[in-house]
Design a protein around this nucleic acid. Sequence first.
RNA 1: GGAGAGGUGCCGGAGUGGUCGAACGGGGCGGUCUCGAAAACCGUUGUGGGGGUGACCCCACCCAGGGUUCGAAUCCCUGUCUCUCCGCCA
Length: 429
Amino acid sequence: MHDIRAIRENPEAFDAALARRGLASLAGELLAVDEQRRAAITRAEGAQAEQNRASKEVGAAKARGDEGEFERLRALVAEKKAEVAAMRGEADAADARLQAMLAEIPNLPLAEVPEGADEADNVEVRRWGSPRNIETPREHFDIPAVQGGLDLPLAAKLSGARFMVLRASVARLHRALAQFMLDLHGGSHGLTEVWAPVLVRDEAMFGTGQLPKFAEDSYQTTNGWWLVPTSEVSITNFAAGEIYEAGDLPIRMVAHSQCFRSEAGSAGKDTTGILRQHQFEKVEMVTLCTPDQALAEHERMTGCAEAVLQALGLPYRVVVLCTGDMGFGAQKTHDIEVWLPGQGKYREISSVSTCGTFQARRMNARFRPEGGGKPEFIATLNGSGLAVGRTLIAVLENGQEADGSVSLPEVLAPYLGGAGQISAEGALV
RNA sequence: GGAGAGGUGCCGGAGUGGUCGAACGGGGCGGUCUCGAAAACCGUUGUGGGGGUGACCCCACCCAGGGUUCGAAUCCCUGUCUCUCCGCCA
């Protein structure tokens, strides 16, 4: 959510930033509505002040038994009251229009974000590791070791397309990955592990920016709760309405949750395998900090996500998203793409964004600056650390051997009863 | 799901129609006293919005939204959250 006062002070800069995102100018329209709104407020408050004055005098007139004055003031109050109601109505309507417009405008890219139209214009920042030389790489669902452990037809029977059933070694590996990530982030990375609801109210979805514009992308229960598309929604909204002390920031959290996405519009992409699911698990990092800490925290969080891939020995690259490819709430985003031998491509496995004060403004999340003073909006960041299902794919595909087995990263052994491999027959050994 | 009790400022807690943005206590901050500290005493202490170059002025907010009234923290309705008991349940 943007600050209308900032737009008022520098409409040209606002429109220029929108243009970088490929959007048309909006400042003129916004300021016109803002003008109407403020004019109506001024008139409403003027009338209200008069009404308040008259109201006070009514009591006094009554007390001294001045019936004539009493009746006159009463009539005056009634008149002002009607005037106030009319003006307030105008002000509220203008305000609602303004809020509705602002609520659908995406965050603006930082100056350092490369300009571009889509994915193709993202800029690679660095690479880590190099892909193994695999003779005839298979996609995860074709690897012999995985055959008994991944049952897509069964999932289809239960739920339809884009769901999965995992069994035995693969189910356990999936769980092991999530546990490993949580332990790593909660341990040496110093994040606080949290657990939060995945069913949330409208307000929470608005706060992080899923509503009002992207209602179609999420599922809603019959009684109105939303199933979160990422626990970023639940966790970032911890801050809603809060005023933190500057000294308490940054607050760094990590959670593991189910995520639900209806993926409207993506039909036809990645239809085989488990890359794109309606329900999946993700380990998510969220940081609440002051705006001037945000960029350093963004790098730190990216590093936390990379550490998971490094520990698992999975080759990846980090790209900075261009202006045209960034999400609604982001000011700057790093995507981390892991090497998938089966596709012979780097594919997104994590997305780390700083939202600046954009979400904080939507959810009224503030902090009191060092040494006191007026509360200011905090900055919020979120990043996957990592998407568990996609990590499963990456581990399986990168570890696949010519004999049909899969070699597993050593760091997972403690979570797998010491196993280091899934045999071609699907057993953990 | 049923029955009941409640939601007041940083915290505790008054306040059931009239000048209450809110008594009182605690906490915080500033000061007096002191070599310093404690104690004591004095003062101060919210958020949002509108207007003005400015000193400053105005409006709103006692969970939220409606309503009654000349006037509501106080009365009515709805929602919401918390607590207690019953039922159900992992």
